[in-house]
Design a protein around this nucleic acid. Structure first.
Lengths: 352, 352
DNA sequence: CTGTTAGCGCATTCAC
DNA sequence: GTGAATGCGCTAACAG
């Protein structure tokens, strides 16, 4: 009325029935037991008044709002597709997401306090049925998970497995596979001195750790092959680190960057040093972000299945919510990934 | 309790007061009139039980949910920044967005029925306080706006002005300004035969219309200058249209593409035709999407202020919601934009 | 076949 | 200073 949405009461009145009757007919619950004519009256009244159910009330009563909280980092095309996957799956099952972008102002460097529970509270106050989280991995952040877990709100994390005490499901890219296909590719091309450029704070991002660890393992398998590990420092520009790698003596013949953004730093450093890619150094990235094919030369990289990850995350969450698997053991899905070979990798030059 | 969130009743009981008392103290309303000690008890109980207010109830009672619906097209970096702007502004004012991505599976070609009201209903059923919409412009779509307008839900549209009957506010890029700066730039470089490549279905997107119309006007002001208009056809690949432009006799010396994606088609067509950019043709885009600086050569384009647009859209909406300007006239904000000159434009070659 | 009663969690009167 | 009563819009349990 006041706000332009007629209530069930209005419908009932217009159809000359009681409120519960209207309710039951509109939700076709036990509808069989009503007279044709009554049903008609109610249905028509509802249509005429353009009745819409109030999900707030439904939430109040059933404790379920068909709403899911999503906390993600800033966009890159990987996270965009994850969001699409989440969105589509939720929508198809009659849920909606409330997406909160956390810390997109800074470079995740911790300027915003990690223990700020305000975003989770926003979601909890709206009684979300569950949450999909990108968990910054520093322990201080675990307050968020405490908060959700202690309220029995199901959680699925993407790209990080939480300690089991939080009882969250997770979905991550199969980093071991990724490491293997990159290593195989480079080894096959003849590379033996390979550098790995990791992301800022190896302890901060678990995927960064995994990416490096598994890669080292793979490389270690091949005799005569060495793996130089560097990581982008919080304070130092990525390009500086990349330059350090490329000026090492002897220079590595290939650089595997833990993600496409880091690969870009390698490109920039190479340009400054007058090194050609891939003639002088091969470069491999990770993620296959949208700009990867546009780089010059186009970047060889590992494609993560963002959309599918999003879909699975949502499906996982909803089956938790709907109690489809109440088993206490939490699920942990690994998605596969694939190498996209483009122009930034080539056989090792002879004189190296 | 059952779902892990204690209610006000729990707090009241724990603090040995009545529910209304707890309510008032926690919302510090008329708090002055309570004894220090009672306040303490309530506050402590709330903290201990980790009480969180139930916004569903608040919504039920006040009619306001502090939730805003957002319907946007698929991501590109322009829309990403718009979303950021919306998000940040909403958050800072204690609202949250429910973002629905419409039609991102296809190329807006109308495969999904335009009259599908299901997404709006999802939002309405959750009693959003207002909505920010990217309005596909075909008239069939106006059902969405009917639906919202007739329920007195404030609406702000981005990049399109709705017929005034819908009473929506809008915020768009100042297309006239954009056209002027592009025209000025090209004219100054000596270009006289300039092609404009518009987006599919000139009638479908109002910004596309504006972009073309204003550009023609600007060009018309300079004697001896001609403007060739093309548009990407729904059925034809963009690259084909671009090729047609570049093989026209006499060939235009510059192409102004209505957005950066179209500019990419021009690049591809030029490559196929062995034309160099900018030596043989200059190219200008629109939007300054994230890949524009990465193109080879980097694209000269018009930067739209996505983030600011998002912020203003949200602020506009919230002031409507909060009744800050009840005047019936609807607001229409135009954002300015600026030319980013990069490597894809150059003075006209002599022999042209 | 349909209406009455109660209650979800809370805020807003109004009383004591 | 504080508690009891009422109602938001709706559903579920119980009466007829």
């Amino acid at each position: 009325m006041a706000d332009g949405i007629s209530s069930l009461k209005d419908v009932a009145r217009a159809a000359n029935v009681s409120v519960p009757t209207a309710s039951r007919i509109l939700r076709r619950k036990g509808i069989a037991r009503f007279s044709e004519e009554t049903c008609e009256r109610v249905l028509q009244a509802a249509a005429r008044l353009r009745y819409r159910p109030n999900m707030l009330v439904k939430g109040l009563q059933t404790g379920l709002t068909n709403t899911v909280g999503v906390m993600v980092p800033p966009f890159d095309s990987y996270w965009s597709s994850i969001l699409y996957g989440i969105h589509d799956t939720l929508i198809s099952l009659d849920y909606v997401p409330i997406v909160l972008w956390v810390w997109h102002r800074d470079d995740y460097s911790g300027k915003e306090p990690f223990d700020n529970l305000e975003p989770v509270h926003r979601l909890i106050d709206r009684r979300i049925d569950g949450a999909i989280l990108w968990p910054p991995v520093t322990p201080e952040y675990y307050g968020h998970h405490e908060e959700l877990a202690s309220r029995n709100i199901p959680v699925v994390t993407i790209d990080h497995e939480l300690p089991s005490q939080y009882g969250a499901d997770s979905i991550t890219t199969n980093e071991e596979l990724g490491a293997r296909i990159v290593a195989d590719h480079l080894i096959k091309l003849g590379h033996r001195r390979i550098a790995h450029l990791g992301d800022v704070g190896l302890d901060t991002y678990s995927w960064s750790q995994g990416r490096r660890k598994y890669f080292e393992q793979q490389i270690a398998k091949v005799p005569g092959t060495s793996c130089i590990i560097s990581e982008r420092d919080k304070k130092v520009d990525g390009i500086e680190v990349a330059k350090k790698i490329l000026t090492a003596k002897p220079r590595p013949t290939a650089v595997y960057a833990a993600n496409d953004l880091l690969a870009r730093y390698v490109y920039l450093a190479a340009a400054e040093l007058n090194l050609r890619i891939p003639e002088d150094v091969s470069v491999v990235g990770f993620a296959d972000l949208d700009f990867a094919p546009l780089m010059v030369p186009p970047l060889t990289t590992v494609r993560q299945k963002g959309y599918e990850i999003g879909c699975k995350a949502a499906r996982l969450l909803l089956s938790r919510i709907q109690g489809k698997f109440v088993e206490s053991e939490n699920g942990s899905i690994k998605m596969d990934c694939e190498l996209v070979v483009r122009g930034s990798t080539a056989p090792v030059p002879r004189n190296s």
